[in-house]
């Protein structure tokens, strides 16, 4: 067997170098290529204050009042809970097509969905809006009382969406839950048309 020549040693070094480059490239691709969540993230607009209308491509929305309550009722339904209700009153109008509003509450990394319990008044259930015709209603979120004292409760975010949110607009409204007093009972009504 012949000893290795300088040329063969060089080619071995080159092979090791090429291999290292491939591995480094694979690591770089794994680390730096954006995830699907990042490439399809929605466009988030902020509602800066109560009674301020903000538009996305698909809808406009205004938050008119935010309350906490131990109990929520409609003329037909009584919503007792072993937690607490967040009641968000809004005025909503689709802009492009007939649509309903949906939403959720985010406290730190925890996501609370809108309640489907009331038959008549919840925004998630109640009204489908037509473009340019706003209506007023209430969005209900049921959560444990401990959520009001949890980390992030002073900057809880209500997110409003219409259908698919990937690469489309969503609205966010920030609430300091620690500053809201909890009422014994709140009565809400069916969504109603309001003047544009």
């Amino acid at each position: 067997m012949s000893a290795s020549t300088p040329g063969s040693r060089l080619s071995r070094r080159a092979a090791v170098l090429v291999g290292a480059v491939f591995i480094a490239t694979a690591i770089a691709v794994a680390v730096f290529v954006p995830s699907e969540e990042q490439t399809t993230a929605p466009y988030v607009s902020v509602i800066p204050a109560l009674d301020t209308t903000v538009e996305t491509r698909e809808f406009s929305l205004e938050v008119t009042r935010v309350r906490l309550a131990d109990r929520v009722q409609t003329p037909e339904w009584l919503g007792d809970t072993n937690g607490v209700w967040l009641v968000v009153d809004i005025v909503f109008a689709p802009r492009l097509a007939t649509a309903g509003i949906d939403g959720m509450l985010r406290i730190d990394d925890r996501i609370y969905l809108t309640s489907r319990r009331p038959d008549t008044a919840a925004v998630d259930q109640g009204a489908i809006g037509d473009p340019g015709l706003p209506w007023a209603g209430s969005m209900l979120i049921e959560m444990p009382v401990s959520a009001l004292r949890s980390s992030g409760a002073d900057a809880a975010v209500v997110q409003f969406t219409v259908g698919e949110t990937r690469l489309d607009g969503v609205l966010e409204y920030t609430i300091d839950l620690t500053e809201l007093a909890t009422q014994d009972s709140v009565t809400i009504f069916e969504p109603e048309r309001v003047a544009p």
Binding site: D80, R110, L113, R116, R117, I141, E142, P144, A147
Partner: peptide
């Protein structure tokens, strides 16, 4: 079905029995 008020397919939010 929610046993308390018979809502079908209710939401089950974090931390709320």
């Amino acid at each position: 079905v929610l046993a308390t008020d018979h809502t079908t397919l209710p939401v089950v939010n974090p931390g709320l029995p």
